[in-house]
Design a protein around this nucleic acid. Structure first.
Lengths: 271, 271
DNA sequence: CGCCAACTTGACGTCGGTCAACCGATGTGG
DNA sequence: CCACATCGGTTGACCGACGTCAAGTTGGCG
């Protein structure tokens, strides 16, 4: 393997609730990666689990026609590299130079989990968090408009500790990565960010550092509602894409149809 | 609780590799659901894990403006309802009438896993498969065009045992659900299916039963999302707008730009 | 200072969302 | 048994958001 590594089992920075993973950490092998350097390749066999210690990485795949898909970004504390299959379906590359990633030999980790229920729970928990993350990500991807996607993305980045300390969100990845993550063109990402900037919803310190000025507005965009500041626009002519649809729909009527088009009543009470 | 249930711990049909989950199955409570009936709601606390025994279900959420998105479909054998958080973020509803779903009290299942490593491994495996499924799903959603999305969807449905026996794929969900799953309009789903039909790529027995006539073409449309396990497929010759671009990129050069636009040289060799 | 990558902005064409109508299957009541 | 309503699905027409191509601007590093 071409992976540079030290064998210093270093404690994971950034892990939120400081778990008693000491025994697991004994297995850790720490690797340092430069920008775009590969942590593992597509079709590799699965021999390790990984955890980001410092920096950030992306999980991606290329399709036949040369386009790229980014399936996930991982940040300090995130455990990744789980897979139900026999081989990797994606490759993982560091985004920022000096990214530190710990890897845990899978068989040994599994054995450890076998005799230590606490470790097994922790791993399970990490997997569950990974699922939750993927689901939320799916929800963002599934949004229709560029404004919704980008707003959702900014909120996600803001929430995932990537920023934390200062009020600013750090976007370690280039616009290209954002575009591939959101399944849209780089230009549209850029345009949408500018739109948010001119609306004063966000402010750029530099292209990679954003401050969220109006989080409420972002959340509003992300869930596909009407423009907050602007007037409800009594008429429908010059309406732009963001003051879409009407305000809050009420259920009440009980139609059996569980369609998208409008609101359905059904028995669910999802927010 | 309004959930109808019997306490017959029935063996799960459709589970592929017949696992020794006997002890876990002792905990199972079987429920029967009609179409659109809710298995659990959004914001419910997390008290069970679930497994589809027969039928199918969808995991979905509503956004503020009344649109719905479907995060996942689950079929017989699929274990679901894992969650890193404290409360559900989605609700799950049966798609077909007579859907059978087993539920396992979470705390008791966890305890069982604590003292039975094999069960712990099985649960972990199920979680990993769930992750893999979500990732593949993300790849489909991330595809740009309607044709790609729908083709990817059909392949997914075909692969996920939903069909199996006969050569035809059964689509248990209405078009609306497909639309919300793929984040597109129902009309577009319909139009795209007709296009595939006129191209003779697929044939409908009825709106819910499709036969895939030219799987190679579908894979080609879906362009690269193919499950690596599957056989090399037919070939890519007479296809439309796609050209096979270059083959495999060599490592070596370290270009900093990992762009989408065209093909970049980078060091990855994802298929 | 000058180069190149990263990012932004502009112009234009198109894919797909929206609105609306239509069709067949199923069901319900008279 | 046949009107009539309802629901799922399909088709058509229109137009706006976004992808594409191309040029311009910023910023980081030699």
């Amino acid at each position: 393997m071409d992976i540079p590594s030290t064998s210093i089992p270093e404690l994971v920075e950034g892990t939120a609730p400081d778990r008693p993973l000491a025994a697991l950490e004994q297995l850790a092998i720490l690797g340092r990666y430069d920008t775009d350097q590969c942590v593992y390749h597509c079709n590799d066999s699965i021999e390790h689990w990984y955890r980001v210690v410092r920096g950030a990485a992306r999980s991606s795949a290329l399709s036949d026609d040369g386009r790229r898909y980014i399936v996930d970004f991982v940040f300090p504390g995130d455990l990744f590299g789980f897979c139900g299959q026999r081989a990797r379906h994606f490759c993982v590359e560091a985004i920022v130079s000096g990214t530190l990633i710990a890897r845990y030999p899978r068989d040994r980790a599994e054995k450890l989990a076998d005799c230590n229920p606490q470790i097994a729970r922790n791993i399970r928990q990490a997997a569950f968090e990974s699922i939750a993350r993927m689901q939320k990500r799916t929800a963002i991807l599934g949004r229709a408009s560029a404004l919704e996607k980008v707003s959702g993305f900014l909120l996600e980045m803001s929430d995932r500790g990537a920023a934390a300390a200062t009020g600013t969100v750090f976007l370690p990845m280039p616009r290209y990565d954002i575009a591939d993550y959101l399944a849209m063109a780089v230009e549209t990402v850029s345009r949408t960010l500018t739109e948010l900037r001119t609306r004063r919803t966000i402010v750029f310190r530099d292209p990679r550092h954003v401050s969220i000025c109006d989080r409420g507005a972002l959340e509003h965009f992300a869930s596909g509602l009407i423009d907050p500041q602007r007037q409800p626009a009594t008429r429908r002519e010059q309406r732009t894409h963001e003051d879409l649809s009407r305000s809050l729909p009420q259920p009440v009527i009980s139609s059996s149809r569980t369609a998208t088009p409008k609101v359905q009543s059904g028995e669910q009470r999802c927010s």
